[in-house]
Simulated scan of single mutants.
Amino acid sequence: MDVLSDVLERARARGGVFSVLRRVEPWGLSFAGERELTAHILLDGRAWLEQEGAAPVELERYAVLLMTAGAEYAIVSSPGAPRERIGDARATGTSTADGSAATVLCGAYTLEGSVGAAVLADLPRPVLIPAAWQEPAQRAAVGLLAEEAARETPGQQALLDRLLDTNLVYALRAWWQHSAAAAPGWFTALADDPLRRVLEAIHDHPDDSWTLPELARVARISRSGLAARFRQQVGVPPAAYLTAVRMQRAEETLRYTDATLAEVAAGVGYSNPFAFATAFRRHHGMPPGRWRQRAREAEAGAEPF
């Protein structure tokens, strides 16, 4: 199993484009920073990222900017340019005036559960993926975003949203490949064949009764070698990683199905619901039944894009 794809699928990472705005200099767009993950792509023109207490950062054409939740920030035509709030800018709409202009695409992502929280926790603010870091396929996808945004055709919003989803996978992969020190341990471990085999086995079958000797056979190295190598690369022992994956799968089943606790337990590798409930409570600080109720209440009250 492709571990990165599995992580993003379990996080239910999905995006929606909420604005494609052309602005004529001088211009500025300010963002409250409340969305959990926002993407900005400069489709043409020139722009800068401004954040309080930080030097302005120039954005090149087709660079991908990811911003996690935090303080207010702005994208401007030049440092110090006047700003308008993004809500007001969307109400005004795109500008057709003559002059030096830029077009900025803005989209937001939602990520769910502890898998989504872990992905967000592994991202600094800001994440900037310049065009030079983008593999040809990502540059092509960004180019398609630009082409589709430049015209109004049936199905445009659906295409933009799906292309934004594609962009997240490319952007995270490019960022973590070029910023290894900031990448999560499981991602860097994928470059190590023995560890990759173990990670894929765990993600493929977290319900199996894995032991260290069995995982060592998958890795084709000694038990002591796997234990030391896994902890060093991933940051936790194999057993702890297996438990985390099991708890993430349990979250998903509790949130989205009406499976009984016995069914959830069996689905993630526990022989009885009591052992599962104990492990779940240790991991989440509450019993699985209460966690399910709170998760569903939170989902019912969540705001759409």
Rank of each mutant, 00 (worst) to 15 (best):
A150S: 14
S30Y: 00
M67A: 02
G113A: 10
L105H: 13
G225D: 04
A182Q: 13
A216K: 04
S5H: 07
T110W: 07
A189G: 05
F187N: 01
F280T: 02
T92W: 08
V76E: 01
E252T: 14
S78K: 05
T103H: 02
Y170V: 07
G70Q: 11
R282S: 10
A180Q: 13
L145M: 11
R292P: 13
A180K: 11
R162L: 13
L29A: 10
R125S: 12
V218N: 05
H205I: 02
D204G: 06
A240R: 14
R290K: 11
S100P: 12
A191I: 00
V104H: 09
A300C: 02
Q157A: 12
V7R: 15
G28I: 09
E148R: 05
M67V: 02
A158N: 01
Q156S: 01
A81K: 03
A140F: 11
R46D: 12
G15N: 09
L42C: 05
L159C: 03
E135V: 10
V119D: 07
V268F: 10
A171P: 07
P82A: 04
G116Y: 08
T211Y: 01
P288D: 14
G116E: 09
F274L: 14
T94P: 02
R217F: 00
A171Y: 08
A108M: 04
S5M: 03
A219C: 09
A295C: 12
A141Q: 11
P124W: 04
A102K: 07
A140Y: 09
F280D: 03
R217S: 04
L190S: 08
W176R: 05
L29R: 09
S224K: 08
P213V: 08
A150Y: 01
H40M: 12
A219H: 07
A131M: 06
D161S: 06
H205F: 07
A181P: 00
G33M: 08
E297H: 01
R10M: 11
L8R: 03
A262T: 15
L226P: 05
P237S: 13
A275R: 13
P56A: 06
P79F: 00
E60L: 04
V57G: 00
R220P: 00
T243W: 00
T166Y: 11
A266C: 01
G235E: 12
W175F: 15
T166F: 09
D161N: 15
L120T: 03
P194Y: 09
D2M: 01
L37H: 05
V20W: 04
D204C: 05
A71G: 13
F31V: 12
V198N: 06
L261F: 11
A13Y: 13
L59V: 09
A132F: 06
A141E: 10
T257E: 14
W186I: 07
E36L: 12
L145G: 02
E135T: 03
V169E: 15
R125V: 06
A183V: 06
E84V: 15
I129G: 05
G80I: 00
D207G: 01
L65G: 02
A300R: 15
M67R: 15
R61P: 03
G269D: 07
M1V: 14
H283Q: 11
